[in-house]
Amino acid sequence: MLKINQLHKSYPIGDSSLHVLKGIDLEVEKGEMVAIMGSSGSGKSTLLNIIGMLDEADSGDYILDELPIKDLTEKKAAVYRNKFLGFIFQSFNLINYKNALENVALPLYYQGMKRKERQEKALFHLEKVGLADWAQHLPKELSGGQNQRVAIARALAANPKLLLADEPTGALDTKTSHEIMAFIQQLNDEGKTILMVTHEEDIASMCKRVVRLRDGVIMEDKKVEQVRAEQYV
């Protein structure tokens, strides 16, 4: 699915620069569910953003689904993001003046899908996350857990190959976190490849593989026995 080789990234800070990623090697197969762990500031988000083509690496190779990701034009990157990737963020990142249905339909709009078709599709995905009745509600009228489910529906709408989640439960209470995790596990059961950043051990234990970052390198990468989230719901 994806293959990363000797990836480096640093951020300029004043005159000097902050070397965040110092040679990352990572390979993820189709159908995996990987947690990226590490303390705050260890570069988890940076890595995920580079994988998501939201940011660019300074050096190193990155191949996504046999496609080398390098020196992309903005336009190309937009097309790839739209086609291959679905994003779930800690702060949901829904557009506040659009209702749930419109938010879910937005990636389909950028695919050039017809209005009627994309509304049907968006509604289908909202149903899947159990929010069909909330389709016409604005984000501010929904709870955190509901908003995150709208965001998940949006990430799924374009049927991406890879789902990227940056602390998807970071803004939620434990119970809601487990509901969301149960849902993400279900997606993985259905075959979606999932890459998730978290700094919570119990969330990480609900994945199938844990990658630990420290000082810009991977210090541990191991398969784990998946804890099912349903039992806590």
Binding site: G52, L54, E74, K75, A78, V79, R81, N82, K83, F87, N93, L94, I95, L106, P107, Y110, Q111, R154, A158
Partner: peptide, 16 residues
């Protein structure tokens, strides 16, 4: 800015 970022993450081209 944030909205534009979201749109871009979802696949909005610079032109759009």
């Amino acid at each position: 800015t944030k909205e534009i970022g979201i749109r871009k993450a979802l696949g909005a081209s610079p032109k759009s």
